Computed example of a mutant assay.
Amino acid sequence: MSNWLYLHLRAIAQASGRLARQPLGTLLSALVMGIALSLPAGGYLLLDNVASMARGVSGTPEISVFMDAAAAAEDAAAIEKRLRADPQLASFRFVPRDEALKQLAAGGLGDVLGGLESNPLPDAFVVTLRTGDPEVFDTLAAQMRAWPKVAHVQLDSGWVKRLHALLALGRSAVVMLAALLGFALVIVTFNTIRLQIMTQRNEIEVSRLLGATDPFIRRPFYWFGSLQGMLGGLVALGAVWLGVMGLSAPVAALAETYGAVFALSGPQWPESVAIVLFAAFLGWLGAEISVRRHLAGT
Protein backbone atom coordinates (compact mmCIF):
# COMPACT_ATOMS: atom_id res chain seq x y z
CA MET A 1 0.00 0.00 0.00
CA SER A 2 2.83 2.41 0.89
CA ASN A 3 4.53 1.70 -2.46
CA TRP A 4 1.23 2.29 -4.30
CA LEU A 5 0.76 5.59 -2.48
CA TYR A 6 4.35 6.63 -3.20
CA LEU A 7 3.93 5.93 -6.92
CA HIS A 8 0.78 8.03 -7.12
CA LEU A 9 2.33 10.88 -5.13
CA ARG A 10 5.32 10.76 -7.46
CA ALA A 11 3.01 10.86 -10.50
CA ILE A 12 1.10 13.82 -9.00
CA ALA A 13 4.39 15.66 -8.45
CA GLN A 14 5.46 15.01 -12.05
CA ALA A 15 2.10 16.14 -13.44
CA SER A 16 2.08 19.25 -11.25
CA GLY A 17 5.60 20.09 -12.42
CA ARG A 18 4.59 19.81 -16.05
CA LEU A 19 1.60 22.08 -15.44
CA ALA A 20 3.77 24.61 -13.63
CA ARG A 21 6.41 24.65 -16.37
CA GLN A 22 3.85 25.82 -18.94
CA PRO A 23 1.77 28.38 -17.00
CA LEU A 24 0.24 30.07 -20.03
CA GLY A 25 -0.93 26.81 -21.59
CA THR A 26 -2.22 25.58 -18.23
CA LEU A 27 -4.11 28.83 -17.67
CA LEU A 28 -5.67 28.82 -21.13
CA SER A 29 -6.73 25.16 -20.83
CA ALA A 30 -8.24 25.81 -17.40
CA LEU A 31 -10.10 28.85 -18.74
CA VAL A 32 -11.49 26.89 -21.69
CA MET A 33 -12.69 24.04 -19.46
CA GLY A 34 -13.96 26.37 -16.75
CA ILE A 35 -15.97 28.61 -19.07
CA ALA A 36 -17.47 25.59 -20.81
CA LEU A 37 -18.41 23.91 -17.52
CA SER A 38 -19.81 27.12 -16.06
CA LEU A 39 -22.58 27.14 -18.67
CA PRO A 40 -24.38 23.94 -17.58
CA ALA A 41 -23.46 24.50 -13.92
CA GLY A 42 -24.86 28.02 -14.01
CA GLY A 43 -27.93 26.84 -15.91
CA TYR A 44 -28.72 24.16 -13.32
CA LEU A 45 -28.20 26.64 -10.48
CA LEU A 46 -30.44 29.16 -12.23
CA LEU A 47 -33.23 26.59 -12.54
CA ASP A 48 -33.11 25.83 -8.82
CA ASN A 49 -33.25 29.52 -7.99
CA VAL A 50 -36.12 30.12 -10.40
CA ALA A 51 -38.07 27.27 -8.79
CA SER A 52 -37.50 28.75 -5.32
CA MET A 53 -38.48 32.23 -6.47
CA ALA A 54 -41.61 30.98 -8.24
CA ARG A 55 -42.74 29.14 -5.14
CA GLY A 56 -42.18 32.25 -3.04
CA VAL A 57 -44.07 34.52 -5.43
CA SER A 58 -46.97 32.19 -6.23
CA GLY A 59 -47.48 30.97 -2.67
CA THR A 60 -48.15 27.45 -1.47
CA PRO A 61 -50.55 25.39 -3.61
CA GLU A 62 -53.66 24.20 -1.81
CA ILE A 63 -56.51 21.71 -2.10
CA SER A 64 -60.02 22.91 -1.28
CA VAL A 65 -62.42 20.22 -0.05
CA PHE A 66 -66.07 21.35 -0.25
CA MET A 67 -68.60 19.47 1.85
CA ASP A 68 -72.07 18.44 0.70
CA ALA A 69 -74.77 21.00 1.48
CA ALA A 70 -76.55 18.43 3.64
CA ALA A 71 -73.42 17.52 5.63
CA ALA A 72 -73.74 17.78 9.39
CA ALA A 73 -71.16 18.72 12.03
CA GLU A 74 -70.39 15.04 12.58
CA ASP A 75 -69.51 14.65 8.91
CA ALA A 76 -67.12 17.60 9.06
CA ALA A 77 -65.54 16.14 12.20
CA ALA A 78 -64.98 12.83 10.38
CA ILE A 79 -63.27 14.61 7.50
CA GLU A 80 -61.10 16.56 9.97
CA LYS A 81 -60.06 13.29 11.60
CA ARG A 82 -59.00 11.88 8.22
CA LEU A 83 -56.96 15.01 7.47
CA ARG A 84 -55.19 14.91 10.83
CA ALA A 85 -54.14 11.32 10.22
CA ASP A 86 -52.56 12.00 6.80
CA PRO A 87 -48.77 12.55 7.13
CA GLN A 88 -48.55 14.13 3.66
CA LEU A 89 -50.44 17.23 4.81
CA ALA A 90 -48.58 20.21 6.21
CA SER A 91 -51.69 21.95 7.58
CA PHE A 92 -55.39 22.47 7.03
CA ARG A 93 -58.09 24.85 8.19
CA PHE A 94 -61.85 24.55 8.39
CA VAL A 95 -63.90 27.31 6.73
CA PRO A 96 -67.55 27.24 7.92
CA ARG A 97 -70.18 28.29 5.44
CA ASP A 98 -71.09 31.40 7.46
CA GLU A 99 -67.47 32.57 7.49
CA ALA A 100 -67.19 31.98 3.74
CA LEU A 101 -70.34 34.08 3.21
CA LYS A 102 -68.90 36.90 5.29
CA GLN A 103 -65.68 36.83 3.26
CA LEU A 104 -67.64 37.11 0.01
CA ALA A 105 -69.70 39.97 1.41
CA ALA A 106 -66.54 41.77 2.50
CA GLY A 107 -65.18 41.32 -1.01
CA GLY A 108 -67.86 43.59 -2.50
CA LEU A 109 -70.68 41.10 -3.12
CA GLY A 110 -72.82 42.19 -0.17
CA ASP A 111 -75.64 43.55 -2.36
CA VAL A 112 -75.89 40.33 -4.35
CA LEU A 113 -75.73 38.05 -1.31
CA GLY A 114 -78.25 40.16 0.60
CA GLY A 115 -81.02 39.05 -1.73
CA LEU A 116 -80.50 35.36 -1.01
CA GLU A 117 -82.95 33.60 1.31
CA SER A 118 -80.31 31.17 2.63
CA ASN A 119 -76.58 30.62 2.58
CA PRO A 120 -75.76 28.60 -0.58
CA LEU A 121 -72.12 28.06 0.35
CA PRO A 122 -70.91 24.74 1.81
CA ASP A 123 -68.47 24.12 4.62
CA ALA A 124 -64.95 23.61 3.32
CA PHE A 125 -61.44 22.55 4.30
CA VAL A 126 -58.38 24.28 2.83
CA VAL A 127 -55.48 21.81 2.81
CA THR A 128 -51.76 22.54 2.37
CA LEU A 129 -49.36 19.73 1.41
CA ARG A 130 -45.75 19.15 2.46
CA THR A 131 -44.71 18.70 -1.16
CA GLY A 132 -45.32 20.46 -4.44
CA ASP A 133 -45.31 17.30 -6.55
CA PRO A 134 -48.34 17.42 -8.91
CA GLU A 135 -48.70 13.62 -8.78
CA VAL A 136 -49.19 13.74 -5.02
CA PHE A 137 -51.83 16.45 -5.47
CA ASP A 138 -53.75 14.36 -8.00
CA THR A 139 -53.56 11.21 -5.86
CA LEU A 140 -54.79 12.94 -2.70
CA ALA A 141 -57.56 14.75 -4.60
CA ALA A 142 -58.82 11.42 -5.98
CA GLN A 143 -58.86 9.96 -2.46
CA MET A 144 -60.69 12.96 -1.03
CA ARG A 145 -63.38 12.85 -3.72
CA ALA A 146 -64.27 9.35 -2.51
CA TRP A 147 -64.77 10.46 1.09
CA PRO A 148 -68.40 10.55 2.34
CA LYS A 149 -70.22 13.89 2.26
CA VAL A 150 -67.56 15.50 0.01
CA ALA A 151 -69.24 17.28 -2.90
CA HIS A 152 -66.25 18.76 -4.73
CA VAL A 153 -62.45 18.90 -4.53
CA GLN A 154 -60.65 21.78 -6.19
CA LEU A 155 -56.91 21.76 -6.86
CA ASP A 156 -54.78 24.87 -6.89
CA SER A 157 -51.97 23.01 -8.62
CA GLY A 158 -52.19 24.15 -12.23
CA TRP A 159 -49.23 26.50 -11.86
CA VAL A 160 -47.32 23.74 -10.04
CA LYS A 161 -47.74 21.39 -13.01
CA ARG A 162 -46.61 24.07 -15.44
CA LEU A 163 -43.63 24.93 -13.25
CA HIS A 164 -42.57 21.29 -12.95
CA ALA A 165 -42.92 20.81 -16.71
CA LEU A 166 -40.79 23.89 -17.44
CA LEU A 167 -38.16 22.86 -14.90
CA ALA A 168 -38.03 19.34 -16.32
CA LEU A 169 -37.54 20.79 -19.80
CA GLY A 170 -34.84 23.12 -18.52
CA ARG A 171 -33.00 20.32 -16.72
CA SER A 172 -33.10 18.16 -19.85
CA ALA A 173 -31.60 21.03 -21.85
CA VAL A 174 -28.88 21.50 -19.21
CA VAL A 175 -28.03 17.79 -19.28
CA MET A 176 -27.76 17.85 -23.07
CA LEU A 177 -25.57 20.96 -22.93
CA ALA A 178 -23.36 19.36 -20.28
CA ALA A 179 -22.99 16.22 -22.39
CA LEU A 180 -22.00 18.17 -25.51
CA LEU A 181 -19.55 20.43 -23.70
CA GLY A 182 -18.18 17.47 -21.74
CA PHE A 183 -17.46 15.69 -25.00
CA ALA A 184 -15.68 18.79 -26.29
CA LEU A 185 -13.58 19.01 -23.12
CA VAL A 186 -12.60 15.35 -23.44
CA ILE A 187 -11.34 16.16 -26.93
CA VAL A 188 -9.35 19.13 -25.57
CA THR A 189 -7.69 16.92 -22.96
CA PHE A 190 -7.13 14.21 -25.56
CA ASN A 191 -5.13 16.59 -27.74
CA THR A 192 -3.23 18.04 -24.78
CA ILE A 193 -2.10 14.60 -23.63
CA ARG A 194 -1.25 13.64 -27.21
CA LEU A 195 1.12 16.61 -27.42
CA GLN A 196 2.61 15.67 -24.05
CA ILE A 197 3.28 12.13 -25.27
CA MET A 198 4.87 13.38 -28.49
CA THR A 199 7.21 15.79 -26.67
CA GLN A 200 8.26 13.08 -24.19
CA ARG A 201 8.63 10.27 -26.71
CA ASN A 202 12.38 9.90 -26.16
CA GLU A 203 11.99 9.97 -22.38
CA ILE A 204 9.33 7.27 -22.58
CA GLU A 205 11.54 5.05 -24.73
CA VAL A 206 14.43 5.40 -22.31
CA SER A 207 12.15 4.58 -19.36
CA ARG A 208 11.00 1.39 -21.09
CA LEU A 209 14.58 0.36 -21.79
CA LEU A 210 15.28 0.77 -18.08
CA GLY A 211 12.40 -1.56 -17.24
CA ALA A 212 9.55 0.90 -16.53
CA THR A 213 6.11 -0.71 -16.77
CA ASP A 214 3.21 0.71 -18.75
CA PRO A 215 1.22 1.72 -15.60
CA PHE A 216 4.31 3.58 -14.31
CA ILE A 217 4.58 5.51 -17.60
CA ARG A 218 0.88 6.18 -17.95
CA ARG A 219 0.19 7.29 -14.38
CA PRO A 220 1.60 10.86 -14.70
CA PHE A 221 -0.48 11.45 -17.84
CA TYR A 222 -3.63 10.38 -16.03
CA TRP A 223 -2.88 12.77 -13.19
CA PHE A 224 -1.98 15.52 -15.66
CA GLY A 225 -5.44 15.27 -17.24
CA SER A 226 -7.20 15.01 -13.87
CA LEU A 227 -5.38 18.00 -12.38
CA GLN A 228 -6.04 20.04 -15.50
CA GLY A 229 -9.72 19.14 -15.20
CA MET A 230 -9.78 20.09 -11.51
CA LEU A 231 -8.32 23.49 -12.36
CA GLY A 232 -11.06 23.91 -14.96
CA GLY A 233 -13.66 22.97 -12.34
CA LEU A 234 -12.32 25.62 -9.96
CA VAL A 235 -12.47 28.19 -12.75
CA ALA A 236 -16.09 27.13 -13.42
CA LEU A 237 -16.96 27.63 -9.74
CA GLY A 238 -15.39 31.07 -9.81
CA ALA A 239 -17.32 32.00 -12.94
CA VAL A 240 -20.60 30.82 -11.41
CA TRP A 241 -20.01 32.80 -8.22
CA LEU A 242 -19.17 35.91 -10.24
CA GLY A 243 -22.45 35.45 -12.09
CA VAL A 244 -24.34 35.06 -8.81
CA MET A 245 -22.82 38.23 -7.37
CA GLY A 246 -23.52 40.14 -10.57
CA LEU A 247 -27.18 39.07 -10.77
CA SER A 248 -28.06 39.25 -7.05
CA ALA A 249 -29.14 42.90 -7.09
CA PRO A 250 -31.28 42.72 -10.29
CA VAL A 251 -32.97 39.51 -9.12
CA ALA A 252 -33.74 41.01 -5.71
CA ALA A 253 -35.25 44.07 -7.42
CA LEU A 254 -37.40 41.82 -9.64
CA ALA A 255 -38.65 39.82 -6.66
CA GLU A 256 -39.51 43.04 -4.83
CA THR A 257 -41.89 44.04 -7.61
CA TYR A 258 -43.89 40.89 -6.77
CA GLY A 259 -43.86 41.67 -3.07
CA ALA A 260 -41.38 38.91 -2.28
CA VAL A 261 -37.98 38.86 -0.62
CA PHE A 262 -35.59 36.64 -2.57
CA ALA A 263 -31.82 36.28 -2.54
CA LEU A 264 -30.01 34.49 -5.35
CA SER A 265 -28.00 31.62 -3.88
CA GLY A 266 -24.77 30.17 -5.23
CA PRO A 267 -23.72 26.52 -5.32
CA GLN A 268 -23.45 24.81 -1.94
CA TRP A 269 -20.50 22.63 -1.03
CA PRO A 270 -22.02 19.35 -2.40
CA GLU A 271 -22.64 21.00 -5.78
CA SER A 272 -19.18 22.60 -5.71
CA VAL A 273 -17.48 19.27 -5.01
CA ALA A 274 -19.55 17.62 -7.74
CA ILE A 275 -18.49 20.23 -10.32
CA VAL A 276 -14.79 19.83 -9.50
CA LEU A 277 -14.98 16.03 -9.49
CA PHE A 278 -16.89 15.98 -12.77
CA ALA A 279 -14.26 18.22 -14.36
CA ALA A 280 -11.50 15.97 -13.01
CA PHE A 281 -13.30 12.93 -14.45
CA LEU A 282 -13.51 14.58 -17.88
CA GLY A 283 -9.79 15.31 -17.73
CA TRP A 284 -9.02 11.73 -16.70
CA LEU A 285 -11.26 10.34 -19.46
CA GLY A 286 -9.54 12.42 -22.14
CA ALA A 287 -6.15 11.32 -20.81
CA GLU A 288 -7.23 7.67 -20.73
CA ILE A 289 -8.38 7.70 -24.35
CA SER A 290 -5.29 9.57 -25.53
CA VAL A 291 -2.86 7.36 -23.61
CA ARG A 292 -4.41 4.15 -24.95
CA ARG A 293 -4.41 5.56 -28.47
CA HIS A 294 -0.93 7.07 -28.66
CA LEU A 295 1.23 5.58 -25.93
CA ALA A 296 0.92 2.07 -27.36
CA GLY A 297 2.74 3.19 -30.49
CA THR A 298 5.70 4.73 -28.70
Score class of each variant (00 low, 15 high):
residue 64 S to Y: 11
residue 94 F to D: 08
residue 105 A to C: 04
residue 163 L to S: 06
residue 85 A to K: 06
residue 68 D to E: 14
residue 85 A to S: 08
residue 154 Q to I: 11
residue 134 P to F: 01
residue 67 M to W: 00
residue 91 S to H: 04
residue 145 R to C: 03
residue 85 A to F: 11
residue 98 D to S: 05
residue 84 R to L: 12
residue 161 K to I: 10
residue 70 A to R: 10
residue 145 R to Y: 05
residue 152 H to K: 13
residue 155 L to M: 13
residue 51 A to W: 02
residue 54 A to N: 06
residue 83 L to M: 06
residue 94 F to C: 02
residue 101 L to Q: 07
residue 171 R to C: 09
residue 163 L to H: 08
residue 81 K to Q: 09
residue 93 R to Y: 12
residue 99 E to M: 06
residue 132 G to E: 09
residue 139 T to W: 03
residue 60 T to W: 06
residue 64 S to E: 13
residue 134 P to L: 00
residue 144 M to R: 01
residue 126 V to N: 04
residue 127 V to C: 06
residue 181 L to A: 03
residue 119 N to W: 05
residue 168 A to I: 07
residue 166 L to M: 07
residue 166 L to H: 15
residue 130 R to A: 11
residue 65 V to E: 11
residue 96 P to N: 02
residue 75 D to T: 01
residue 145 R to D: 00
residue 144 M to Q: 07
residue 123 D to Y: 00
residue 56 G to Y: 03
residue 120 P to K: 01
residue 79 I to L: 15
residue 156 D to K: 02
residue 75 D to V: 00
residue 62 E to G: 13
residue 116 L to V: 06
residue 109 L to Q: 13
residue 116 L to M: 05
residue 114 G to K: 08
residue 132 G to C: 04
residue 103 Q to A: 14
residue 57 V to T: 09
residue 106 A to K: 15
residue 165 A to R: 03
residue 91 S to Q: 09
residue 103 Q to Y: 05
residue 101 L to N: 01
residue 174 V to R: 04
residue 147 W to D: 05
residue 73 A to V: 14
residue 67 M to Q: 10
residue 111 D to I: 11
residue 138 D to W: 13
residue 49 N to M: 01
residue 101 L to C: 05
residue 66 F to V: 04
residue 150 V to L: 02
residue 133 D to K: 09
residue 152 H to M: 14
residue 161 K to R: 14
residue 78 A to C: 01
residue 59 G to C: 01
residue 142 A to K: 08
residue 162 R to T: 12
residue 121 L to G: 04
residue 72 A to G: 06
residue 71 A to E: 10
residue 180 L to R: 15
residue 129 L to K: 12
residue 153 V to C: 05
residue 170 G to P: 01
residue 166 L to I: 07
residue 179 A to T: 10
residue 104 L to N: 03
residue 171 R to M: 08
residue 153 V to L: 01
residue 104 L to Q: 02
residue 147 W to G: 14
residue 100 A to E: 07
residue 101 L to G: 07
residue 128 T to Y: 08
residue 137 F to I: 08
